[in-house]
Simulated assay, not measured.
Amino acid sequence: MSSVTPAQRIRATTWFHVHLVSDSTGETLSTMLKSTAARFERAKPLEHVASLVRSNAQLDKVLARIEQAPGLVMYTIVDRQMRRRLEVKCAELQVPAIPVLDPLLNAFADYLGLEQTMQTGAQHELDDDYFRRIAAIDYTMAHDDGQMTWDLESADVVLVGVSRTSKTPTCMYLAHRGVKAANVPLVPTSDPPPELAQLRKPLVVGLTASPTRLSQIRRTRLTNLAANQDAATYSDEDQVKEEVTKAKRYFAKNGWPTIDVTRRSVEETAAKVLTLMSARQGGDISQG
């Protein structure tokens, strides 16, 4: 058992300024900062986000903020003159200026033998991929929590599982990746919709979790909802264990791959689903 108190843990935390400077939305920088900072348990970034920085007047304000709160600077800026101004200022302040995409872009250019397209926000153009993502989000919202089961054949993937196995958030994450994802809950008082076992086009994936963990999550949900005692069986561990066992048998009967989400984040579950989809396209699907 650790002897470090919460107060000591707070004092041990290193807070540092990070300026995210982008001529686009800044989503790439935010994601990379989150992934990198997660590797340093006692370091917490204080984010200063400057997105859509496309003029010298906007950059002047950014440089002033960096001077007021010096720290790491991560940037994605296409304009060479603005990049140079940012780099010079950071050198004067003796703070790192990190062009996060440069190593990737240079490697791609060398491998492909092609020049880069120097276009701001090129990844956010209203192209086919953009409209595919919008269509996927619309589809996923319309097919959430067992809605429109008669239309599941048009899905790319269908997630099935008992209550609180992260079906909806996983589907929404997949939808933002352009995947038309539907989800169907398994309810102990009802049989699964017959359409599920008849699906041919979509990949059907069963989601399961530890009964103990599910029971805890459900109990917390009931507390937050101020539910009455009549709903207590919803979180009863024996009842949950029976639900999970029944669900696993159902998945096995239909030959569906399964994912145990007990120790997985939504992003990790979605990544596993994408891997299963890729394997299916290649003719190799396995239980997970």
Rank of each mutant, 00 (worst) to 15 (best):
I134N: 06
I134G: 06
I134L: 13
I134M: 11
A135H: 14
A135F: 11
A135L: 12
A135P: 04
A136R: 01
A136F: 00
I137W: 05
D138C: 04
D138E: 14
D138N: 14
Y139M: 05
T140F: 00
T140N: 00
T140I: 00
M141C: 15
M141H: 13
H143Y: 08
H143M: 11
D144N: 09
D144E: 11
D144Q: 05
D145R: 12
D145V: 08
Q147P: 01
T149K: 03
W150F: 13
D151E: 15
L152D: 07
L152Q: 08
A155Y: 06
A155R: 05
V158I: 02
V158P: 10
L159R: 03
V160P: 06
V162T: 14
V162H: 11
V162L: 10
V162K: 07
V162S: 14
S163Y: 12
S163N: 13
R164M: 05
T165V: 09
S166E: 08
S166G: 09
K167R: 11
P169I: 06
T170A: 02
T170P: 01
T170M: 04
C171R: 10
C171I: 06
M172P: 00
M172V: 07
L174M: 10
L174G: 10
L174C: 09
A175D: 02
H176M: 12
H176Y: 12
H176R: 11
H176S: 09
R177L: 10
R177I: 00
R177C: 13
G178E: 00
G178A: 05
A181V: 08
A182V: 04
N183D: 04
V184M: 05
V184Q: 09
P185K: 08
P185V: 03
P185G: 04
P185H: 06
L186A: 13
V187W: 11
V187Q: 14
V187L: 15
T189R: 15
T189G: 09
S190F: 15
D191S: 15
D191P: 13
D191C: 12
D191H: 14
P192D: 05
P192Q: 07
P193D: 12
P193W: 11
P193T: 03
E195L: 04
L196E: 08
L196Q: 02
L196M: 02
A197P: 07
A197G: 12
A197N: 08
A197K: 03
Q198N: 14
Q198K: 15
L199V: 01
L199Q: 10
L199D: 05
L199F: 03
R200E: 14
R200H: 15
R200D: 15
K201S: 12
K201H: 13
P202C: 01
P202I: 00
P202Y: 01
L203G: 03
V204D: 07
V204F: 01
V204R: 11
V205Y: 09
V205E: 12
T208S: 14
